[in-house]
C-alpha cells in the first residue's frame, strides 16, 4: 500500500447506480501527487461515469472520496473546480454556436462590472490565443465558431481549456480519440510537460496502449464495476495489457453466449 499522505485523490468503495443499471460496484482508486494514471476498460465499463463522479457531475451512490487528505462531498462541477478538479469530457462539452475563446472560458468568464457580468472579451481572446499557441494548437483564429473546426481541433481546445485552468487534478476522458497522429502527439507532449513539472495529477482514459505507456506512471483496469488491475507502468507491458483485453473480449463473448 502506498503512503496515503502522498495521494491527491482517493476513492473508497464507490458505487454508482442509474436506476437498475449499476456501472460501478466497488471502486477503490488512488492517484498520487504529480502522478499520471491510465484508466483502461471495455466500452461501457463505466470509465466515463467514474470520471464524472470525480469531477462533481454525478454524485456517487455509495462510497467516499478524499481529496488532498480530506474527505469531500462534491456538490457540483463548480465545487469540484474550486477544489482544483477539472475534466475534459468524452463529449467535449463545447458549444458549436460559440467562438473558440468563449468556449475556452465557458462558466469561468472573466467579467467587468461585477453583478452585471459584462464579459471581458479582450482578455479572454488574448489568453485563449496565448494558451493555444503555447500548447501548439493550430486553428485559423480564436474568433471562429467551434462548428467550423475539425474533430481533432475541437478536442485540442477542450484539452487546452482544462490544462490552463490551473487544475491540480486533470481528468481526460479519451482526449485523443478524434485525433490524427500529429495532434495526438501534441496532447501527449502536453501531458509529459505537466508530468515533468510534477504539480498536476492526471487520470487519462485512452484505448491506444502505446500512448498510455508514453505518458502514464501507473495503469488501472476497470472491469465489472471494480478496479481489477493496478500496476506501475514499468512493471507491465503492452503485451500484458493486450492479453488482458483479449481475455476481456473472450469473457464478454462467453457471457453473451450463455
Amino acid at each position: 500500500m502506498a503512503n496515503k499522505d502522498n495521494d491527491l485523490v482517493r476513492l473508497e468503495n464507490v458505487a454508482k447506480r442509474f436506476g437498475p443499471v449499476q456501472p460501478l460496484k466497488n471502486v477503490n482508486l488512488r492517484v498520487g501527487r504529480g502522478e499520471v494514471l491510465g484508466l483502461l476498460g471495455n466500452n461501457g465499463a463505466g470509465k466515463s461515469t467514474l470520471m464524472k463522479i470525480l469531477c462533481g457531475y454525478h454524485p456517487a451512490s455509495e462510497g467516499k472520496m478524499f481529496f488532498d487528505g480530506e474527505e469531500v462531498n462534491l456538490r457540483s462541477v463548480t465545487h469540484a473546480r474550486q477544489l482544483g478538479i477539472d475534466c475534459v469530457y468524452q463529449d467535449l462539452a463545447l458549444v458549436s454556436e460559440l467562438n473558440v475563446y468563449h468556449n475556452m472560458f465557458l462558466q469561468r468568464e472573466p467579467v467587468r462590472g461585477g453583478f452585471l457580468g459584462i464579459l471581458d472579451n479582450k482578455r479572454m481572446k488574448a489568453d485563449a490565443q496565448r494558451h493555444l499557441d503555447d500548447m501548439g494548437v493550430n486553428i485559423p483564429s480564436v474568433d471562429v465558431e467551434i462548428a467550423k473546426l475539425s474533430g481533432g481541433q475541437r478536442q485540442a481546445i477542450a484539452v487546452a481549456r482544462s490544462v490552463y485552468s490551473d487544475a491540480r487534478l486533470l481528468l481526460l476522458d479519451e482526449p485523443t480519440a478524434a485525433m490524427g497522429a500529429k495532434e495526438g502527439a501534441m496532447i501527449l507532449d502536453v501531458i509529459n510537460r505537466l508530468r515533468a513539472k510534477g504539480e498536476v495529477s492526471v487520470i487519462i482514459i485512452a484505448h491506444n496502449y502505446a500512448q498510455i505507456f508514453d505518458v502514464c506512471d501507473r495503469i488501472n483496469l476497470l472491469r465489472d464495476g471494480e478496479i481489477v488491475f493496478d500496476k506501475r507502468a514499468e512493471d507491465t507491458s503492452v503485451q500484458e495489457l493486450t492479453d488482458i483485453v483479449v481475455h476481456e473480449y473472450r469473457h464478454a463473448a462467453e457471457t453473451l453466449n450463455e
Partner: peptide
Amino acid sequence: LHTIAVGGNLDGSTEAG
C-alpha cells in the same frame, strides 16, 4: 453567453457547470 450555450448544447453546458 450562457443562454446561447444552454440552447446550443444543453448537456455540454451542464458538464461545464
